[in-house]
Design a protein around this nucleic acid. Structure first.
Lengths: 153, 153
DNA sequence: GTCAAGACTTGGAATAAGTCTAAATATCAG
DNA sequence: CTGATATTTAGACTTATTCCAAGTCTTGAC
């Protein structure tokens, strides 16, 4: 299940992401990010902490939370919240969707078909979809109006 | 913003829902459910508590949590979790999707076009969509296999 | 109607997840 | 190398939710 992620790849991505936002490159950020990429699953902050701590024993939980937030801000990681419970993190930034198993609570990536430009979904075999929901994110009319008013002030 | 919800309507729905699962009709369940229907928004448990408590001062927070879970089980209410933060509740059970405003954190219902059978989405004017995600729920291959094995045992 | 059995509600204690704070440490530009 | 600033850390704190045990209400049987 473990993926070998070349450290240069981690460094390059991380550097780019951090540079974009003027943040610093640190050993902790590199370590946590590489742990996320290594196993491309959807761990909670707690799971990230345990995985990362085994190789970096002085790491603190606060740093894990800080770093995860940082990675999200840098656009290197997505937050995933589909249910009551701890936030999970997803290091796959390719356009994709999620499948949430209501039995084991697992989260699986479902990629949009990369061939076609269309948002065609290719559900991998074995997944039984009982329900789906589309979640839009953006700016609501009221907030958009406020922002427009401020811009004109 | 308040909707007048005829109490008979509340009672009928609630009765049906509870009957399906063998649960009892109580004053608290009726009260909380009618509060949810009255203002068709997406309140957190805490907000529900405050709204409901004003008319029913002895109501406890524990009952609000219990009742919300009960209503979810009865299929009268949906849980909504799109971000880190308290769970929200949605009493609109018609097929629809959600828009999450990243500025004010508000949640808005986006209905699937009811005319066409197609999952065509009609985004109301003023909403600026920056991103969207499809969330599937169901059973993953591993859990499905386990269930099948158990069924054959 | 009365009663027992079980369902429901309640307040408060307990837990889990995440945030905040202030001091120590690391990084970077010059 | 040094100062300015960003980052990390441990632990206290807050918030959201769950658990628990005692009391109350509902219901069906008589």
């Amino acid at each position: 299940m473990e993926r070998q992620v070349p450290i240069d790849f981690v460094d390059e991505r991380l550097n780019k992401g951090l540079a974009r936002t003027g943040l610093r490159f640190t050993a902790q950020r590199r370590h946590i990010y590489s742990k996320l990429l290594e196993k491309g699953d959807h761990p909670s902050a707690d799971e990230v902490f345990m995985r990362a701590k085994s190789d970096m024993p002085d790491l603190s939980m606060a740093t894990v939370y800080n770093t995860l937030d940082t990675l999200v801000k840098c656009g290197l990681v997505r937050q995933v919240n589909h249910e009551r419970g701890p936030t999970r993190y997803c290091s796959n930034m390719e356009k994709h969707h999620h499948f949430h198993c209501t039995t084991c609570n697992g989260v699986f990536d479902i990629r949009s078909d990369p061939e076609s430009g269309e948002p065609e979904i290719h559900m991998p075999p074995g997944f039984e979809v009982l329900q789906f929901e589309i979640l839009f994110r953006g700016i609501c009319p009221e907030c958009a109006a406020k922002q427009a008013a401020e811009a004109n002030a």
